[in-house]
Design a protein around this nucleic acid. Structure first.
Lengths: 196, 196
DNA sequence: GCAGTGTTGCTAGCACTGCTAGAATCCGGG
DNA sequence: CCCGGATTCTAGCAGTGCTAGCAACACTGC
């Protein structure tokens, strides 16, 4: 009984070790550097051990992505609750979102650009994913007009942020001007608001 | 003199063959299926021939991306010139952009998601890239307020479209609702326009 | 017409990838 | 103390992008 519990505990511990090692390696050298061999060496086990925990490399990335979503949700919440007023809250959340993406590019890639085989826009989506989206929703909701679908509106706003981030990170948009582009996006999503 | 001209012509012909084969293969089975071996077989030459034309696989993808940009520019222009009125033009261009992305996902990936090592936001960017952006600019410009930077505004609008497309294609946004999300984006970028 | 020459394209192979079958090893229970 | 079963490792597969060095070809000058 007790010894099996210990084994399960150790196993869970090692699983967390895999995920955090993958994340650290990715953040330090990019996802290309995260090979199964390299990752196995990092956790001081052999390759096949990885496959006893995860179905494959993409499953490991998915686990990292979920972890990242939890973190992002926290940062968005902090930004939102710290700001006063509808417009300022949306601006703060947008700022926090893009700052997160720029500070942790590899994490962001795992979450929102790489194919990771996670259920997204469904109730079965992992909690951290729904939480992160919920934070965006909470910031966007007050800006909605009468009868507007706040879910769709949030998705559209999210797309704007995501586009800014990815196009910039791939060199398609110059870093310079990011603040002003973000301000334009916020401005267009809060036009016609009494508080502006 | 003439024989060298013929050789160069044949060489250029083969280069075009490589690019179009890569493109067709990518559109049919995705970029993962475009391996150097497969591509070589497709053009009925051996692998090293590819490297006498392009620096590597990414360079081939870049060539495909440029071709795709030219095509996108054409479709955007058609959409823009066919529509009447500032708002309708922006809507038509947005519609054409997302339709292109959904119809030719592999092409779109090469152009705007994969790392392709092309100069983008500079004067040295290939003409088709600048043309495609110019089409967006032409549609966005009339919506700009007094003293607004139309370049930055276009970039922001582009980011919105790009975000919608990529999040949808990776399953992060449901296909259903695309039209309404696009309408919301257009709406927010044309608010406060006399013609609305 | 023909040998020499220089380019052109091919064969073979490197170092690496994700992933897995089967051998070896370790650990708890009798 | 030793056996049995779970656990982990070694070794290898099929595939990747890319390249060195050789063979064969086409063209030039005689």
């Amino acid at each position: 009984m007790s010894i099996q519990a210990r084994k399960e505990r150790e196993r869970a511990e090692r699983e967390r070790l895999i995920v955090s090692a993958a994340r650290e390696l990715a953040e330090a050298e990019g996802w290309d550097a995260v090979t199964t061999r390299r990752l196995a060496a990092e956790i001081e086990y052999s390759q096949p051990v990885l496959y006893s925990h995860f179905k494959g490399k993409t499953a490991i990335m998915a686990a990292v992505a979920v972890e990242g979503c939890a973190e992002l949700a926290g940062e968005l919440r902090r930004a939102r609750t710290a700001a006063e007023g509808t417009r300022a809250r949306l601006a703060a959340v947008g700022e926090a979102y893009t700052a997160f993406a720029r500070r942790r590019p590899a994490l962001y890639d795992a979450m929102f650009t790489h194919l990771v085989d996670l259920p997204w826009a469904t109730p079965e989506a992992p909690a951290p994913l729904r939480e992160a989206f919920g934070e965006l929703l909470a910031a966007v909701e007050p800006t909605a007009a009468e009868g507007e679908d706040t879910g769709l509106l949030t998705e559209t706003f999210w797309a704007g942020l995501h586009g800014l981030v990815t196009l910039m990170r791939s060199g398609r948009l110059p870093e310079a001007g990011h603040e002003r582009r973000l301000a334009l996006l916020i401005g267009h999503f809060t036009a016609g608001l009494p508080g502006s």
